[in-house]
Amino acid sequence: MSAAAMPDRRQLGTIISRNKLFEGLFALVGLLIVWIAVLILLALFINLAIDGAPRLSWAFLFSFPSRFPEEAGILSAWMGTVMVMVVTALVAVPLGIAAGLYLEEYAPKNWLTDIIEINVTNLAGVPSIIYGLLALGLFVYEFDMGQTVRVAGLVLALLILPVVIVSTREAIRSIPYGIREAAYALGADQWQVVSQHILPYSRSGILTGMIVGLSRAIGETAPVITIGALTFIAFLPPSPIQGEPPFINFDWLASPFTVLPIQIFNWVSRPQQEFHLNAAAAGLVLLTMTLLMNALAVWLRYRFRKQIRW
């Protein structure tokens, strides 16, 4: 390089200070965008609270929907949500954990494993409404299961299956290999290692994944609309517990239902403003539920990360 091309000290100083300025500006822009996102979330929450909070009352939580906006409530909606979530958790969690265990501990390196891997990734990206079409065509009509709690629970379970699988795998992957080798050295076989060591040690990660998955399922609307959930339900499904033997009743699984997001969608689609306020109040309830679940997951993850020292 010729001497003429070398910047002298003053030029160098300008270049450095200009670069530092750009760097500072970029950091500012990055922080600004994050702040804008914070503000938008705040705006969303405050807007919902201003519209909806005045409508929130015990009567609102424990009334059925009604033609009259001031008498309408969300009892059947949140009861439906709770029942659907029970079915979703019972299906998605065992299935997801089992699939995660297989892929992480058993799967040989071959084309079949490759297909399953690509599949799980792809399923996570399939739009939720497509799952709704699957449930409509297969569960509702082909298997004749009706537009019921069990179908909604099943379709949401399929929807969050990739979330449970991925978090199970991540939890398993964080267990050091030495744990497995120690168990094998003592004479355990593979299933003993998996069931007595891998599974118990990864349960915190799996629990977090389960909560994240359920918090996603609880707010899902599209697939439940597609299977044809009714928007006006002025009764509760039969109680799962009854007075006479056998004390447990499964009729609720085959009951028509509605869920919170559908109730919100129904109210927000109406022209009358009074119903919009109901939608805001129900939205506030739903948002609080999801935020609490998310916060629980974040807290659990943080706690477990601090706790575990291999």
Binding site: A37, L44, N47, V212, E220, P261, V268, H276, N294, A295
Partner: peptide, 24 residues
Amino acid sequence: VIKPFLEILEGVPTVVYGYFALLF
């Protein structure tokens, strides 16, 4: 701090975002 916050933003139910888009 930012990463869990972004997760929350991702976790807001879409029907609530719909309300926000239409009425705010």
